[in-house]
């Protein structure tokens, strides 16, 4: 038995706050695994995903849900999908690898990002100050995913509901990202 206990810390210590018409909260119980498609292995991977997770891989800019740990596949770029699912322990890679075996190149990205949800009737108004892409429901409907940047920080954004967005940004600059979001919320509420 080790003499040392390793306790995980969240990038924002589990931040959650309500503002006028906006709620902002850190998500801490999700794992992120990057799934890269081997050259020529598209069909093999699609089959493996279908078999293991009961769904298909999304197109770039789209997402697919899975009943596997309430998972979401995010289509980010050619040959790269992120699988985001409910999982707390540091063995997420092992779990997905067991499912997909050699069908994909996997990389644990859980600790690479801070994850937040921003929701409420003023959420879009706040994002308007920092998000370059068009978040109008006609242009960015529920389930859509995009890589973008906000105040020089790279961000992955997914619309999860009419007024709810899931955001991922690099972990090391999590405090700056929080500041960016809080400033935007302050400026519009």
């Amino acid at each position: 038995m080790s003499d040392f206990t390793m306790v995980a810390t969240a990038p924002l210590d589990g931040y959650a706050k309500d503002f006028d018409g906006v709620s902002l909260a850190e998500i801490t119980n999700r794992a992120i695994i990057s799934i890269a498609t081997p050259a020529g292995g598209e069909a093999h991977l699609a089959k493996a995903v279908k078999s293991a997770f009961g769904t298909t891989l999304p197109n770039i800019g789209g997402s697919q849900s899975s009943t596997f740990s309430n998972g979401q596949f995010l289509g980010l770029q050619q040959g790269q999908t992120f699988f985001v699912f409910e999982h707390d322990a540091p063995n997420a890679l092992e779990i997905v690898a067991e499912q997909l075996k050699d069908a994909a190149y996997l990389s644990d990205q859980t600790d690479s990002f801070v994850m937040l949800t921003i929701s409420g009737k003023n959420a879009r108004l706040a994002l308007e100050r920092i998000c370059l892409i068009d978040l109008h429901p006609d242009a960015f409907s529920i389930g859509r995913v995009a890589r973008t940047s906000m105040e020089h920080l790279s961000v992955i954004i997914k619309r999860t509901d009419e007024d709810t967005f899931f955001l991922m940004s690099p972990r090391s600059s999590a405090l700056s990202f929080l500041h960016v979001l809080e400033t935007s919320i302050h400026n519009v509420t």
Binding site: P38, Y105, Q109
Partner: peptide, 14 residues
């Protein structure tokens, strides 16, 4: 582009 190679940043991960 003919090489089978994929990469991703792991700077933040560890």
């Amino acid at each position: 582009p003919d090489l089978d190679v994929k990469m991703i940043s792991a700077t933040e991960q560890f």
